[in-house]
Amino acid sequence: MIEARDVSLVYGDGTEALKDVNLKIDKGDIVYITGHSGSGKTSLLKLFMGIEYPTKGQLKVLDLDIKKEEENNIRKMRRLIGPVFQEFKLIRGRTALENVMLGLRFLNLPHRKIKEESIIALEKVGLGHKRDSLVEHLSFGETQRVAIARAVVRKPAIILADEPTGNLDLDNALNIMELLTSFRDEDTAVIITTHATHLLEDIDEGKFIRVNQGQVTVESRGEA
């Protein structure tokens, strides 16, 4: 699903965000990316989403080379990814349901199907009763769940969640981790970044990617 070979990323201002990254993520993997703030976690996710292009090496996401020339195909590739952004990026002035439906709008599905799937997704994250609420009227935790529902509604090949536990207390953070990992199946990989390493101490299955000053080390636990 994702394969990086000697991938480096240097920003326009000369900042070296990632150095010679080698990693492989397969179908059904559950991946935790950890590291301090500014270590390069978000840069790695930006590469996976095709928001940035490697300045060196080769990165393949869902069999697509992530490079400038593939810009149009990258846009299409993103339809197979369910992103949960750090700042959620929900659209104000629209209801929770409308925001979730947005994830399916341009996937050639009939309107009724889009609505049905979106309601199911909202119910899965425990927000079926709040579907008609405007997103700006929801609490922080509820907003986060709407963002997760929008990501999973399209049954993506990869769920990418950037710091989903940030600003949450321990219980809520664990709940969100549990919710996200519950969407993993044999066809869907779940990738979560977090700087809260203590949340991962008791997890005994998955790939653990540690990013430190742009360099990556990979450790596997359990079946993964």
Partner: peptide, 16 residues
Amino acid sequence: RDQINTLKLLGAPDSF
């Protein structure tokens, strides 16, 4: 612009 950027990140085509 924020809404447009979000739609791009979700993979929406320019026409949409």
